[in-house]
């Protein structure tokens, strides 16, 4: 269990923790716009952590290059897709959630 295995184990654990947090977040949030945070942001962080943990496992090879490409691509496209979903939802008249006055 040398150092790189240890670091990748820590990265893997935190990545899986954020993945499940994103899942719980998307279930518990009251409204579509609040679920965007859970699905969009936490998702891209979880995949970055898990795939960088895999990168550490494979050292400097073609596998690491492919993993790096996947991470960079997902970091570019997941926010774009989330923005596109939010824009379409907003344009089609989906109103953000309002807390009821009685709970202030």
């Amino acid at each position: 269990m040398n150092v790189s295995d240890l670091i990748s184990a820590v990265l893997l654990t935190s990545g899986c923790f954020f993945a499940i947090t994103g899942g719980v977040g998307i279930l518990r949030m009251p409204d579509f716009y609040t679920r965007l945070h859970a699905a969009g942001k936490v998702d891209s962080l979880a995949q970055a952590l898990i795939l960088s943990a895999l990168m550490l496992q494979s050292g400097l090879t073609l596998v690491t290059a492919k993993l790096f490409l996947i991470v960079m691509f997902l970091l570019a496209t997941t926010p774009t897709a989330t923005h596109a979903v939010a824009k379409t939802a907003h344009l089609s008249g989906l109103k953000p959630w309002r807390a009821r006055k009685s709970r202030t």
């Binding site: 579509f32 679920r35 379409t88």
Partner: peptide, 23 residues
């Protein structure tokens, strides 16, 4: 409830599938 929740969830599942296939 809305179609956009579904699109969002399917998009997130796709990203998770990418990670799962890599694993």
């Amino acid at each position: 409830p809305t179609a956009f929740d579904r699109i969002l969830a399917v998009n997130a599942i796709g990203t998770k599938t990418v990670v799962f296939v890599a694993l």
